[in-house]
Amino acid sequence: MRFNPKADISGGRVSDAGRGGGGGRGGPMRIPLPGGARAGGGIGGVIIVILFVVLTQCMGGGLPGGGGGGTTQGQAQGDPQGIDNGDERYASCKTGADANDNPDCARKAVALSLENYWGATLPDQGGTEFQPASIETFDGSIATGCGNATSQVGPFYCPADQKIYLDTTFFADVLEGQLGGQGGDFVEPYVLGHEYGHHIQNLLGTMGKVRTQQGPSSDAVRLELQADCYAGMWTKDASDGDGILEGLDQGDIEEALDAAKTVGDDRIQQAGGQRVNPEGWTHGSSAQRMKWFTTGYEKGTLEACDTFSASSL
């Protein structure tokens, strides 16, 4: 994965909260661990690696299509945090050349690429006004609009403040170290693409469709597979060269597919020493996750990614 060295990435909406930083409302939130996972961290926490708020925040108000919560939503849309806010971690990230040399700057470039892609695609294909999400990195724990979270939750999107939260140690410590993923420089962009897909679902009101939260054909699984499909849509655009990325090779696509396979519910259950139990799934199997990422990559449309209408996942 290479970035256009002349690209201006200074507008990437990424900020850093440091250790135990961040803002937000609400007290500590107990993260439910589906599938009978062990509490107390480790692999159990990764079962909800992508979107813990589906089982906590999303079923209430405060989401488009879900009713209520207009004040929080409006405040989030007007939040300038994440744009060149001067924090030291990202202050030097100005060009694609910086992104080629520094993984933090690469994150900022990916954020801008996602924003540019969805800024054009969402109004065109979804008829919906686009509002950008921001990415906040942290170390250890953070307070968010959805409550407090720790690194064990894994990367997640909070619809209440429209932010993606990421402890960057997750990829080496958990995805590779505990779950055995092969790693690679496109793994994090895939995960960010998936999380940005949740933001698009938030803007479209899709999160309001989530009623059933566990099971191989549950609404929660459909939501997650759709986010994988949206990540595939963006990846295809990036692979064609989007002005920020100079194009992705087959190795990058294989890294994304391996990451999708690694965080499949069946793979995580096996890694945790459990039997494969589809009734406990919240994100979909490895095969399903790879299938829907590929669908988005090959088809490139919101319509093709309509997992809620699909008779077979």
Rank of each mutant, 00 (worst) to 15 (best):
I9E: 05
S10Y: 10
G11R: 14
G11L: 15
R13C: 10
V14K: 06
S15F: 12
G18K: 04
G18W: 06
R19K: 15
G20C: 12
G20W: 15
G20R: 13
G21I: 13
G22A: 14
G22S: 12
G23F: 15
G24H: 04
R25P: 03
R25L: 07
G26S: 11
G26Y: 06
M29F: 06
R30P: 00
L33C: 03
L33A: 01
L33G: 00
P34H: 01
G35F: 03
G35L: 01
G35C: 02
G36L: 04
A37R: 00
A37T: 01
R38I: 01
A39C: 06
A39H: 06
A39I: 06
A39E: 05
I43D: 02
G44H: 00
G45D: 04
G45A: 10
V46N: 03
I47F: 12
I47C: 04
I47V: 12
I48W: 02
V49G: 05
I50T: 05
L51R: 02
L51G: 03
T56H: 06
T56G: 01
Q57G: 07
Q57M: 02
Q57V: 07
C58H: 02
C58Q: 03
G60M: 04
G61A: 14
G62T: 05
G65M: 12
G65F: 11
G65C: 10
G68F: 10
G68S: 11
G70H: 08
T71V: 11
Q73L: 14
Q73G: 07
G74T: 10
G74Q: 10
G74W: 11
A76R: 05
A76Y: 10
Q77R: 12
G78P: 03
G78L: 14
D79C: 13
P80I: 12
G82F: 14
I83G: 05
I83L: 15
D84V: 13
N85R: 09
N85Y: 09
D87T: 15
D87A: 15
E88C: 08
E88Y: 11
E88P: 04
R89I: 11
Y90N: 04
A91N: 09
C93Y: 08
K94C: 10
N100M: 07
D101E: 13
N102Y: 12
N102T: 11
P103Q: 14
